[in-house]
Design a binder for these strands. Structure first.
Lengths: 127, 127
DNA sequence: ATAACTGCAAAATATTTGCAACGCG
DNA sequence: CGCGTTGCAAATATTTTGCAGTTAT
């Protein structure tokens, strides 16, 4: 299936790039809707899915709450604060050797690996 | 808050122990409801939450689909097949050093770490 | 006795989908 | 023009919650 360049699609991508954080799909919607209130939430969801399939953004499955959109596409992992639920990027060395261990134990073919660290972030701990 | 020993609570725990897999809350409900159809789904959910808080079982946040219940409580990680969505346990060495890296980068206090491997399991690949 | 627990139904949350109209290429 | 896309509303999926009655301790 081909894709087309539409106004709404550019708005979606621009919003993600501009937000510089890990917004939920709904937050992307809110951001766009502020200037273009007639846009539909469904359109945002559809475009986010399409853009992530195209590799232009990534959609981080969030084990606590709504998925997050990530404008960074290179490999990295995430820390989630159990208090404010904010996601933070973590750059750690490749865990390919662990993936290999997983393959040996399960006989499966591992294609992707995600790590989630949970805890209390600096801001929340300070209060 | 104290907890009480109830018939429904034992049924819930027994079901999880008996199932020996990674059922969703709804599958636990279905299992129990087969013998005791008058039990409520809400009761199962409440009891699963309570039991996991008590450390008797664990509830694995599933980044794809419904959460899974795990009767194993010691530390381990998971592989999820993108085809059949089945969860498999993976025993790999502690990743404390990665958690430490995360703490250094974020300034946060890491309390738990989860790894999800994704890919195609042996069964699905065989077809 | 009293606070925890239950079943039920409704709410909450997050996301997807059917449909008819619209518009990019 | 044809098919991808849009907005809307409704559907789906999973889990939680309010309430009034029940029960373990």
């Amino acid at each position: 299936m081909q894709t087309r360049q539409t106004f709404q699609k550019s708005l979606t991508l621009d919003a993600v790039k501009a937000m510089q954080c890990h917004p939920t799909a709904d937050q992307v919607y809110a951001y766009v809707a502020e200037k273009y209130p007639e846009i539909s939430r469904a359109t945002i969801y559809r475009n986010l899915n399409q853009l992530s399939e195209a590799g232009e953004i990534s959609r981080v499955k969030n084990p606590c709450g709504a998925d997050r959109i990530d404008h960074i596409t290179h490999k990295h992992y995430h820390f989630i604060c159990s208090c404010c639920h904010q996601l933070t990027n973590v750059d750690i060395p490749d865990i390919g050797h662990l993936a290999k261990l997983c393959e040996e134990q399960t006989g499966a073919k591992v294609e992707e690996s995600q790590i989630f660290f949970g805890g209390i972030c600096k801001n929340c701990a300070g209060r």
